[in-house]
Write a protein that binds this DNA or RNA. Structure first.
Lengths: 205, 205
DNA sequence: AAAAATATTGTACCAAGGTACTAGACCCCG
DNA sequence: CGGGGTCTAGTACCTTGGTACAATATTTTT
């Protein structure tokens, strides 16, 4: 996917060039004549001119159906961002974002995603916040299904300890460790200790 | 809105049942014959089979225009999530999510929304970038020590797949999988696949 | 062109994980 | 007191994971 950078100033942003060393640069969207195909167009806009930005986005998308347009704003504004997305932009971010961020944005957009900055997200998403922090709750809910002794065994197994080591630490035989594990696997409906590790170590929601 | 649960294993997840006590369970998407109308279809998928998941999602959406499809992944993967959304899924979350989370997901989707998990969110949010980015970098640094083929094997092993399954998916013999794993263990200076899973799944930052 | 890395597979073997069936000791509750 | 859950553990057995000691073909690097 080609990268095309459009900036009124025509000046190339250093970080952008780092992300897209092969990218082409234009001074204005009108300068794009030939069909660009599946290009990724980075539209660098100045503050306070939402109207012309929207017109540019609409124009580009109209002329190049296969292209995706990303807006780089010198002074990002949530309202402007929402407007850009309504117009069909695939992303809207700070023009002076670091190369890391720009790379990530590019990746997301290339994968067909829409990149949303934090402010825009908060505006669009009402849920989430509470949910994000609830993974610990999930783990506890999992552990609550187990007896105290099973919990001890489960945690040690999820840390990667062998049955022999668990047995030594809990001062029981290896056979008993196996017995607990069998009970754990059945109760949690999983196959083996690796699945257990995934359940207990995965901090995702 | 009816809830329909599809799992290859046909096993009902306890938390899911709690959220959808009235839900129907099927072993495979093909088992859904009659039109389900405005149903909410929970598609439980195993790790590492993105293709078949996407096919399932596409098939379901094609057959039941009014239905919404939610993907429950045993081993969530951001790329897979993005792919699922591209295919038209209304949500993608961890199969072992707690009932609380599942209920919230259900609510959002029923209201016509698209549910984005924290991992996908964090991928999109710049704020979480520093933290998430560092651990991601760490993981990448780990993976960079491996050859391309070894990376594939390592990731699948870390997801909990058995050698047999990995072999099948990569279309090589189980012996070769073992050879790669032995090389991986030596290079990363770890003992077994569980340690590998801990290394690659640790998203603490 | 030679050397090194990568990818593949074989046979054999041992250790570890996990299951089946069983069972005694202990504790709590109705 | 008896039933049920918990913790413990034995023997036996099977499966999976991992290593040792190979070999061959392809690609990449030097």
């Amino acid at each position: 996917m080609r990268d095309i950078f459009i900036s009124a100033g025509g000046r190339l942003l250093a970080d952008w060039q780092q992300v897209c060393p092969e990218g082409a640069v234009f001074k204005e969207s009108a300068a794009l004549n030939a069909d660009v195909g599946q290009a990724l167009i980075w539209l660098h806009v100045n503050a306070g001119n939402t109207e012309s930005m929207l017109a540019d986005v609409a124009g580009l998308l109209g002329r190049f159906a296969q292209a995706r347009v990303l807006v780089l704003a010198n002074a990002p504004d949530t309202n402007e961002a929402v407007a850009a997305f309504q117009q069909g932009a695939a992303g809207y971010c700070h023009a002076y974002s670091s190369a890391d961020v720009l790379g990530e944005v590019r990746r997301v957009v290339q994968l067909g995603g829409v990149w949303l900055g934090p402010e825009v997200l908060q505006r669009l998403i009402t849920v989430g916040r509470t949910m994000v922090g609830s993974s610990q709750t999930k783990i506890n809910a999992t552990l609550d299904q187990l007896t105290p002794r099973e919990r001890e065994v489960a945690l040690k197994a999820a840390e990667g300890l062998s049955n022999k080591l668990i047995a030594r630490e809990l001062d029981i035989t290896e056979r008993t460790v196996k017995a607990h594990l069998t009970a754990i696997f059945e109760r949690l409906a999983i196959r083996d200790r690796l699945q257990l590790a995934l359940m207990l170590n995965d901090r995702q929601g």
